[in-house]
Design a binder for these strands. Structure first.
Length: 434
RNA sequence: GCGGAUGUAGCUCAGUUGGCAGAGCACCUGGUUGUGGCCCAGGGGGUCGUGGGUUCAAUCCCCAUCAUUCGCCCCA
């Protein structure tokens, strides 16, 4: 039979790397919980229209990257490419705005985008997502960003800094778009890269964050959205900046920062790392005041962010956090005769019931290789069990450090394990206070 | 959707101007050891990603295809 492969761009996640994801989730629950956010679990599939109407029908995500297919009754379903749309759908559907003035959610799970996989980019990837709905005040913007940085700091990623910008609102952005468009058309078309010449028609604001150096040079004198937003947007943004200035969180003002999803407005931010390859955007978010009503809900403002777990994991792996998650076992049981395997399992259960951690060899391989395995696992003790020991109702216990060994009656193995377990707890306590 | 790199033992990878397929680790056996990590000797294991082509002969050259990976694009 031929074997069946995993789907391209999907991944099996093994220990110890999987422990990084648990760490991220645990940290998220603790930090976001401290800000009054509750965990929300939503489906990974929605009707396709939800994403078309929220992300934007013209965006690359919707146009080329969604896993969309009909269900058995012909309705178009889509595996979620991001979390905000589903959260807002749920918010509207459950009348959250009528129950509480402000709703704060965090959520994590898999997202799906049909892209070419590369470092830090999978077709099934995972995001941590936070949304604050119901607050239009700029303080909410600042708090969300401070919370994100708090989360990253608690993960040990202290070197990360956010870039921030404002995108204006429905009132002032169209005017800026025109000013920018006029400026770009005034340039020599040859001075822009091929992509930017196309963007000029589809989405002129995207030209601003083009990474091609020559584009950067030629658009250096481009109008800045900061100078063209309306008074309300300017006031809003200056309050956000003022709070950040007064907090201890450093940030960079990046007037060229724009967002790929259509629903963003006003405050926008992104955390980029240069340490993990080309896909360096670790987290991104911003305000989306029109989205709830656009999806058929009430006029409720919102702000939030998404954080890419694969990219965080790349940075955490650099810090060797994964190794800390795994600990050495207390024992390993070597089986000297095949007939002793079930007794070895019972012995292991006795040890585990007493609080010790360890494994047994299921196969009665040579003692040499089993002892080697015990030292490879860095076990404290190796227990040996064969026909001879069974006949004597004993088990041989060998301390791997000193090499000392004793025969312990099988009936009192539990007592022995309990003593060992108490010793271990004492050592740990001592270690903590020292 | 577009480019570059890679695909050889369970794992990490050498290799041949085209001529019987290699190492380290792992595994197994034996020796040494106070039944153990080191060391020594031996052993098992490979349709050289897949399908075509060129050739007396292809793992090597050519074409196609699949997979992995790094970029472009896009995004978290």
């Amino acid at each position: 039979m031929s074997k069946i492969n995993i789907i391209r761009g999907f991944a099996d996640l093994y220990s110890p790397e999987s422990a990084l994801y648990t760490l991220m989730e645990d940290t998220a629950r603790r930090v976001f919980g401290a800000y009054g956010y509750g965990e929300l679990r939503i489906p990974i599939m929605e009707y396709t229209e939800l994403f078309q109407r929220s992300i934007g029908a013209e965006t690359d995500v919707v146009q080329k990257e969604m896993y969309t297919f009909p269900d058995r009754k012909g309705r178009s379903l889509t595996l979620r490419p991001e979390a905000t749309a589903g959260i807002v759908r749920s918010y509207i559907e459950n009348n959250c705005h009528a129950r509480e003035e402000i709703s704060k959610f965090f959520s994590f799970g898999p997202m799906f985008r049909y892209e070419r996989p590369q470092k830090g980019r999978m077709r099934q990837f995972h995001q941590i997502d936070c949304e604050c709905l119901g607050a239009h005040e700029p303080q909410a913007d600042a708090e969300v960003l401070l919370m994100l940085m708090h989360f990253l700091r608690d993960l040990g990623l202290t070197e990360l800094q956010p870039e921030i910008n404002t995108l204006g609102c429905g009132e002032c952005r169209p005017a800026f778009r025109k000013v920018l468009s006029d400026f770009l058309r005034g340039l020599d078309p040859e001075s822009l890269c091929e992509n930017c010449r196309r963007r000029l028609e589809t989405n002129p604001m995207r030209v601003l964050d083009c990474k091609v150096p020559s584009c950067q040079e030629h658009t250096a004198g481009a109008p800045r959205i900061l100078d063209h937003v309306c008074a309300d947007c300017a006031d809003h943004f200056s309050v956000v900046r003022d709070i950040l200035d007064r907090s201890s969180v450093p940030y960079t003002l990046n007037p060229r920062l724009v967002r790929g999803l259509d629903y963003y407005m006003r405050t926008t931010f992104e955390v980029v790392s240069t340490a993990i390859g080309a896909q360096g955007s670790v987290a991104g978010g911003g305000r989306y005041d029109g989205l709830v009503s656009q999806l058929g809900g009430p006029e409720v403002p919102g702000i939030g962010f998404a954080c890419g777990m694969e990219r965080l994991a790349l940075m955490l792996a650099d810090k060797r956090t994964a190794e800390q998650a795994t600990s050495a076992p207390d024992f390993y049981i070597a089986v000297l005769d095949a007939g002793a395997t079930d007794s070895a399992l019972m012995a292991a259960q006795t040890m585990r019931a007493a609080g010790l951690a360890g494994e047994l060899s299921f196969a009665a391989k040579s003692l040499k290789s089993q002892l080697r395995q015990a030292s490879r696992l860095n076990a404290d003790y190796c227990l040996m069990l064969g026909q001879e020991e069974l006949a004597a109702r004993n088990i041989i216990v060998k301390h791997m450090g000193s090499g000392e060994q004793v025969a312990i009656p099988l009936v009192s193995l539990g007592d022995w394990a309990e003593i060992r377990h108490d010793d271990k707890l004492q050592r740990q306590r001592k270690g903590n206070y020292l």
